[in-house]
Design a protein around this nucleic acid. Structure first.
Lengths: 200, 200, 200, 200
DNA sequence: AATGAATGAGGGTTCATTCAT
DNA sequence: TATGAATGAACCCTCATTCAT
């Protein structure tokens, strides 16, 4: 369901309320174990109200993703413009990626675990916001190559996937780990490895 | 459900039949959209028979993973012993990882997509075969560091996750991609990047 | 909900609009598959407005029937007074019955199909306008018997039902038939049969 | 759902149990007010068991009709062969029709009231057993015309509908009437009217 | 009178699992 | 071991109706 504005040009109160409630409920119980009624109750609305804002249960899940990603992508594009060095840009992507996950553990769980349960999401994986995120990283890579900072012979698509895979894997491990370590702190290690490789 | 042997010390024919049928069915329809009856029919057994070999539906999914991983880990350990250089060992892990996915697309789908849908699997993620796989890679890393091949200041756990994340991300993208490119061919690029980093 | 007059003594515009819209919607989708929201939209009013004119969804259906029947009965009574011969009176009833159905297929569908779906309607079947319609026919019969035109030994109630049953069955068949034949044209055949019987 | 035979060549016990229970439940509460759970409980089976024998709730209703009509049509065809006179044949059809309704009031209610609530039934009205029933009556009429018993100039299709309409209307009125009169007793009156007409 | 956002009761259906044979 | 008929818990979603504005 697309963003709908009220008369005064603001997101309807309830749209956000339901989305925030769903994030909490899905993170706690898992998407398939969560009932729409649970989400409604957590949001303080009637069951039917959920369907005024979302097509169905899965639409809530996907909306959590799309809404967040839209904001993230918009912010990221603005922020990256102020950073000249592709290396620093990558660092910024990594840090903001991991910071985002750290800051809202429920959201992180939904992103790293629950979303993978949505067939529809997985099917459209490459056709959505993820593709934009990949593009954004990809552009930094090619820009870095153009500037002679990154090795030109590397396939930028593969580099992009490896970079994203690193962040994604770190986030997933952090979520699934019993220990509550500082996720953002690993950014430097990842970047060092990514920039300089493992070889001595 | 663990491997059960018949009187003559062989795996019951049907255990494997059900597992193979389930891989096909889960890959085609997704785990949640697959009915136990579908798996039974594909395996040529009665619905109830499935429950003689597996505790429940999820147990089938996890058994696909555990059975495959047991074999993979056993093979990998043997093979790695014959390879002295940690660099070559990593190359072997990458190539065999991607080859395995390439060879059986159904199995790859189950590994990269369907397994992520199992709450129970995700919860035990780090406590199972995955941990062994990580250990195996981790040992290569620390060994490489000990031998002065890999930079000693790198955190081997992070290096391991980045390496695994790269392979995992490549596999997932290959599954979700419309194009049917050669997955194994990217191994060299990944290793080059992993070894030498992105910087010029 | 009874007919309500506005200050200037006229039926509120919207009452009729809703009724006409409902006839169309019910005929097209069936009563149970039609939503009150569909009727409201077709009538160009808000959902809630429907409830200012009708008690509930079923009240709309029954109002279509009662409104139409009130008009039909009033007209019929006037018209029949100008026809002296009971035989001609029956002919007039038959022709006007079938003409009415022919003229408004949507209304015919509601009368022959959708109304039968209303439990409350069926329960009150004999206590409403239908009873009046039966009375009207019954009076023609007894009048004809009194005048020596119709056989006196016939039970007028049964004759009435047979006569109505003939018209009703013809109408239902016409609605359900794929072919679009002339319904009014069968009136003569029915009357011939009704008057003279089937025997040679 | 078609008739399914068990190993010993008999209708499964439960198929008939559910059908009989449904007739009672539908007649008492109406089709739309009856829950599948009500039918299951009345039949002494679990809710899900109903779906082993019927596709859905409406299929139960239609099966009541089709099962009954199949038996009726088969019986009728045999019986009519032993009756030479078309007049007596019509009498037999009328008496057996009304007797059937009289004997099982629940079944009669389902036939005369509840079945009319099924869109699917109404849509296929002419394409099913009803058409066969009409054919059966129609053949008697044309046969009577061929034998010079019935007037040749009458359209046999219209005659058929009027005859059926008479029986149908009598049955419906009997169901909806508060008084519990003898339905079969009206057969003679109907036939007299049908044979000789209303004119003196 | 008119609106339409919000409500929340309600039930048909699925399907993993069991168990008598 | 194997079967498959039977079970019954579980839940998403619809939509008639209300009511604050």
């Amino acid at each position: 369901m697309a963003t709908r504005l009220t008369a005064d040009g603001q997101m309807p109160e309830k749209y956000g309320m339901i989305l925030r409630a769903a994030t909490k409920v899905f993170a706690r119980n898992g998407f398939f174990n969560s009932k729409v009624a649970d989400v409604a109750k957590a949001a303080g609305v009637a069951d039917g109200t959920v369907y005024l804002y979302f097509k169905n249960k899965e639409d809530i899940l996907i909306s959590i993703f799309n809404d967040t990603m839209s904001r993230v992508l918009a912010d990221l594009k603005v922020e990256l413009e102020t950073i000249p060095d592709p290396k620093d840009q990558l660092r910024h992507v990594a840090v903001s990626h991991l910071t985002r996950m750290s800051r809202d553990r429920n959201l992180a769980i939904v992103f790293q675990v629950e979303l993978r349960q949505s067939t529809k999401f997985m099917e459209q994986f490459s056709a959505t916001k993820v593709a934009e995120y990949f593009d954004l990283i990809g552009k930094i890579i090619t820009d870095g190559q153009a500037k002679g900072l990154f090795r030109a012979q590397l396939n930028p698509k593969i580099v992009t996937k490896v970079f994203f895979g690193a962040l994604d894997e770190m986030a997933t491990n952090w979520i699934l780990s019993r220990k509550k370590y500082d996720l953002v702190a690993v950014a430097d290690s990842i970047l060092d490895l990514f920039f300089n490789g493992v070889l001595a």
